[in-house]
């Protein structure tokens, strides 16, 4: 088992073989690096604390049990990790909504994912964070940011988004593309 101090000096991709070999110290470092972002993402999607905890715990246990499946050719460890968290959180959303998300969903509600039975404390925390999705999405025109948020954080398909917003499917596709291209352009310029 690698010492914690040594594990902290390893890059994520160097930690993954250790995690695959069931090294808990390596996994602890891995969680400390990405657990916060993972929980924030899960909380953003499912909209309440307990559900977000479950998502993160299950996602990281799945990584612990299948760490050897990471393929660096498909992206960074962090991107891979957050994609697992995102997919699991979307599964939770869909299971709550039934077979699929409600097509008549109010998109503003979808963006905020307000919990129906949250505690006052949860609600207070959400008020601090809701609407503060800044950075990459914050630089986009509202219509582009909206379709990306509905897809990524709401788990809606482009067809569903078109129906919700009352715009043609091609418009949704175009806004998604333009939005990602704009974010990518800003990253390329080193502004992010």
């Amino acid at each position: 088992m690698v010492k914690r101090e040594k594990a902290e000096r390893l890059a994520d991709e160097e930690l993954m073989p250790l995690i695959a070999a069931k090294d808990p110290e390596a996994f602890e470092v891995f969680f400390d690096r990405h657990g916060g972002a993972a929980y924030s993402l899960a909380y953003r999607i499912v909209g309440e604390r307990t559900g977000a905890e479950d998502v993160v715990q299950e996602a990281f246990i799945s990584i612990w049990r299948s760490g050897a499946r990471f393929d660096r050719a498909r992206g960074s460890v962090r991107a891979w990790t957050l994609s697992i968290v995102r997919n699991r959180a979307i599964d939770v959303l869909r299971s709550r909504a039934g077979k699929a998300p409600k097509l008549t969903f109010d998109d503003e509600l979808a963006l905020e994912q307000r919990p129906s039975d949250d505690s006052t404390e949860d609600e207070a925390m959400r008020h601090e964070t809701a609407g503060e999705v800044r950075g990459a999405l914050g630089t986009l025109p509202g219509d582009q940011a909206k379709v990306i948020e509905l897809a990524y954080f709401g788990g809606f398909s482009h067809s569903e988004i078109a129906g919700m917003l009352g715009v043609p499917l091609g418009t949704v596709k175009g806004r998604m593309r333009l939005g990602l291209e704009k974010i990518r352009g800003e990253l390329a310029e080193g502004l992010a």
Partner: peptide
């Protein structure tokens, strides 16, 4: 760009 989307979430 896709990776920047989850990173934009408030912590």
């Amino acid at each position: 760009a896709l990776q920047a989307v989850p990173e934009s979430v408030e912590r």
